[in-house]
């Protein structure tokens, strides 16, 4: 009988089995990497805005409190985006004719809100409330990062469910006193944070066991 296959077929067979294995593992690994990459999560991806608004300038250089613009953050689910009037309360006085601010002026003139590009967009099946987080002592910086260092806004955290749960299981890692909630530069050692967090858990009646119930976020 003659051979059907060349001797090299032995090597080829092994290499191709190995290759298929590697390709499958690589493919799965690629998908794993993809869903966690900035391409999917938009972490640190700068979104273009109709007006190149700089948080770095307004917060760090000028020293405006977060709540001046995001005025409902302590009382409502949504932190709130400022109406054009809020912008104009200053910009009618300074930089009133800057080209950069032309969209703001036309918004006011036409009585049409500025259409900002949304940076943080949670899925519709998640009921997120800024109010409760702020009231219980979660700092802005915990979720939004150092906004005071962002020339244009980006997402600092992936805001996946895994990430949410991480804090809901161990909220003490991120709790702070009411006066520190909007502070961007508060740094505590981990022992201090642990002690502070434990104390605030008690004081704010936070029960981590119940924070991971489905219906806390999905109602």
């Amino acid at each position: 009988m003659s051979q059907i296959f060349h001797p090299s077929a032995n090597t080829l067979a092994r290499v191709s089995i190995l290759g298929i294995g590697i390709a499958v593992l690589g493919g799965v690994g690629g998908v794993f990497a993809y869903v966690r990459s900035p391409y999917q999560t938009q972490v640190q991806v700068i979104r273009n805005q109709p007006v190149p608004f700089s948080h770095a300038h307004h917060v760090r250089d000028v020293g405006i409190d977060c709540r001046y613009c995001h005025s409902t953050v302590e009382t409502a689910s949504s932190a709130g985006l400022p109406p054009t009037h809020t912008c104009m309360s200053c910009h009618s006085q300074i930089w009133g004719s800057a080209d950069m601010l032309a969209p703001v002026r036309s918004s006011l003139a036409e009585n049409k809100p500025i259409v900002w590009t949304r940076v943080h967009d949670l899925p519709d099946f998640v009921y997120f409330s800024h109010n409760i987080h702020v009231q219980k002592g979660v700092g802005c910086v915990s979720c939004h990062g150092r906004v005071d260092e962002m020339p244009l806004a980006w997402k600092a955290e992936p805001m996946t469910m895994e990430w949410c749960l991480d804090c809901h299981r161990h909220p003490e890692k991120h709790l702070r006193d009411p006066q520190d909630v909007v502070r961007m530069d508060l740094v505590l050692s981990s022992q201090e944070q642990q002690a502070k967090g434990k104390e605030l858990l008690m004081r704010n009646h936070i029960e981590p066991d119940r924070l991971t119930n489905c219906s806390v976020c999905h109602r």
């Binding site: 009988m1 003659s2 059907i4 296959f5 077929a9 032995n10 092994r14």
Partner: peptide, 9 residues
Amino acid sequence: PRPYHPAFN
């Protein structure tokens, strides 16, 4: 797999 083997000769 060993598609080529001397025995086939």
